[in-house]
């Protein structure tokens, strides 16, 4: 019962699991998985990996190298709101962070409590855990009208 979704294991390494931002190649934004792009000199991720083939879009190759050398993800969750029309405000990271740090970032988000009103886009945690990414509110929450 180990029939999981198939992954190509062809050699040389074949790009699989490219995020589907490829609908309009060249017109979408670059996925910013890392600020420093892997180089080609000896000992760099690129030279360790060897030739990369099978990229389905212009971004495929850099995505692939990023994905196996320093995989990063964004994160979406929510924080508790007091005095708001909704009990929760959704939040997200502005930049992807290393996958291994996602649980730590989640812990920081869980600690948060915010007071309504709140504008979408407000920075709730600047440079969370020094990872170069902000936690921002993604919903505008109005303050609940004071009851009599």
């Amino acid at each position: 019962m180990r029939k999981t979704s198939e992954r190509s294991t062809d050699s040389p390494v074949t790009v699989a699991g490219c995020p589907r931002s490829t609908d309009s190649p060249g017109t979408g934004p670059e996925f910013q998985h890392s600020t420093d792009s892997p180089g080609t000199e000896a000992g760099s991720p690129r030279s360790i990996i060897g030739p990369v083939t099978g990229a389905g879009c212009p971004r495929g190759e850099s995505y692939f190298i990023q994905e196996i050398t320093d995989p990063r993800r964004t994160l979406a969750s929510s924080v508790l709101v007091t005095g708001g029309e909704l009990p929760l405000c959704s939040v997200r990271l502005t930049e992807p962070v290393p996958i291994a740090r996602i649980p730590d970032v989640m812990k920081e988000i869980r600690k948060m409590k915010v007071e309504a009103p709140l504008e979408s886009g407000t920075v709730l945690i600047r440079d969370v855990l020094g990872l170069g990414s902000n936690v921002i509110a993604t919903k505008t929450i109005r303050r609940i009208k004071d009851t009599q």
Partner: peptide
């Protein structure tokens, strides 16, 4: 979109990666 708090919205339209609520707003 109000409950789709994950990101990935708006890539083709706004060329930005937004969450569902941001896209709707």
């Amino acid at each position: 979109l109000r409950q789709c708090i994950h990101d990935g919205f708006g890539l083709t339209r706004f060329r930005e990666m937004l969450s569902g609520p941001e896209y709707a707003e």
